[in-house]
Amino acid sequence: MGKARVAPLKQMTIPHMELAAAVLSVKVDKMLCTELQLKLDDLVFWTDSHSVLKYIANEPQEGSKHRVSLLETDLTKGNCSVIINDIKENDAGQYQFRMIGGPFTDPQKITVTALTQEPSMLTPTLTEGKSATLTCTAPGICSGTPPHITWTWRGTGDNMTELRENTTIQKREALTSVTTTHFSTLTFTPSAKYHGTKVTCLVTFNGSVTTKKTLKLNVTNAKRGPKGLRLQKPFHEPGDGGM
């Protein structure tokens, strides 16, 4: 073993060789524990290499802390995919991956584009005097910081009012371990004043990136139908069988 661990003929950097030594120590430890059937509670590995210590600590770059994680934490499954939550414009660029002491993978380019998707809104039939619930779903299903969803109402004038007096509930639904959908519901009782007005759902990501969708409300009356249209009983001429 000692003869095989001298510096290789192919030129390598000192940090690379220090990392290779750290990997070798772990491999030897696993081999000895397996062959000798040892069950040790604590294992201590010593090194004076700052490069090795930084790689082990996996200190993230400024601004990426708590945003980058492995898709699969069990590396024995051979999946080294990573997730970047709350992605930002400066995350664009080329990325390379490698195991400690191993070669880098081919560069992978990531492009970050502006948010163009709008929220999706589900609106039921609105009948005057009957409670109704509108649903607004934020675009995207990636995990990360939950977006903030607000509702605003624009009347016949130019004033916009945030709908706080009505019942608004923001929820999340986990689709998989790494995908989540966020939506908000607005429950209110339509009246004639809402007919022809507009309701806007505003979704804010990370406090700055926003997207919205606006719908025009159509409130019907149970007796009159759409506002302004009165429903009348059919008129029958005498003798045509009508009542």
Rank of each mutant, 00 (worst) to 15 (best):
G102H: 13
D42H: 06
H195D: 10
K65G: 10
E162I: 13
V112K: 05
E118N: 12
P107A: 12
L36F: 09
C80R: 07
I141V: 15
E89N: 13
G155F: 02
T76H: 05
A21D: 02
S184F: 02
D240C: 08
F104Y: 15
S51P: 03
K171G: 01
T111M: 13
I149S: 10
L202Q: 02
D106S: 13
A57I: 00
K39L: 06
I87R: 02
G78K: 08
N206I: 04
N79I: 14
L122G: 03
H195E: 00
A57Y: 03
P119Y: 02
P107M: 11
T150L: 14
R67C: 08
L217N: 01
A222I: 12
I87M: 13
L32I: 15
E72W: 01
I87A: 12
G102I: 00
Q96K: 14
I141Q: 12
D106T: 06
T189Q: 08
L215Y: 00
K27L: 14
L38D: 02
T137L: 11
W46C: 09
P8Q: 04
F188V: 10
F205A: 09
L75F: 07
A114Y: 11
W153Q: 03
K130E: 15
R154S: 01
W46S: 06
D74K: 11
V209F: 03
K3Y: 06
N218M: 10
N58H: 09
T220L: 04
T187E: 13
T168W: 02
E237M: 07
K27T: 13
H50E: 11
G207H: 07
E18Q: 05
G129M: 09
P238Q: 06
S25H: 02
Q37L: 06
L215M: 03
L175R: 11
